[in-house]
């Protein structure tokens, strides 16, 4: 019963099989490692102090910026940029919407600050209702990116809505607000130092 096999010469696993096995195993681990690396890294790529890559937001038809129906970050060099991610289905966004608009009406005449609303996965109908409801006049567009070929929210790696990013005159991210603002003062407090 055992003779035929015990008599067989000691061969072990052929080298080529071993190589295949190891390549496969390490490849698999490599992929998981890359995925893990990405999962870990994406929460740190866009941090205060980082220069934000250029992107272009197509604006909703009700909005224009300097007569254009889209805005690129590079057009806004020299100005303080406030990027607000929101969605019409997001209850906390409604808390800050009026304050954001109020702050915008204060800063708009100075021409030093630009607010930009980015509508995160939303439907046009509801977005329109929302924007109208809060009388929002600063440029707003959908979360589509013409230059980066992926949603802007993806690049900023937002954790949810609302989230607000404050970019200084040199295009460097200075502050990230996760969650809604509870007053206009809070918004002013973040913009004021960037204007100095």
């Amino acid at each position: 019963m055992i003779e035929p096999t015990t008599a067989a010469p000691r061969r072990g696993v052929p080298l080529w099989v071993q190589i295949i096995v190891w390549v496969f195993l390490l490849g698999l681990l490599g992929i998981v490692a890359l995925g893990l690396n990405r999962a870990q890294k994406r929460s740190v790529t866009v941090q205060p102090g980082v220069e934000i890559e250029d992107f272009t937001v197509p604006l909703y038809d009700e909005y224009q910026y300097n007569g254009m129906n889209q805005v690129s970050l590079s057009d806004l060099r020299g100005k303080v940029v406030v990027i607000n991610f929101w969605a019409s289905w997001c209850k906390p966004c409604e808390q800050e919407a009026a304050d954001m608009q109020q702050a915008w009406t204060e800063y708009e005449p100075t021409g030093e600050v630009v607010f930009l609303g980015v509508d995160y996965v939303d439907t046009p109908t509801n977005a329109f209702i929302y924007l109208k409801k809060f009388g929002i006049t600063y440029p707003n567009g959908e979360d589509l990116n013409v230059t980066l070929k992926r949603p802007i929210s993806d690049y900023f790696n937002i954790q949810g809505v609302p989230e607000t990013y404050f970019i200084d005159r040199n295009g460097v991210l200075q502050y990230v607000q996760v969650g809604p603002f509870s007053s206009v003062e809070q918004i002013r407090a973040q913009i004021a130092p960037l204007l100095e």
């Binding site: 893990l36 999962a39 870990q40 994406r42 790696n157 954790q159």
Partner: peptide, 20 residues
């Protein structure tokens, strides 16, 4: 570990690399 999630539920969790 948050490797799979597109909503980053546990992404900040530090146990991923150790687990890996």
């Amino acid at each position: 570990s948050g490797v799979l999630s597109s909503v980053h539920a546990f992404a900040e969790s530090a146990i991923g690399p150790l687990f890996f």
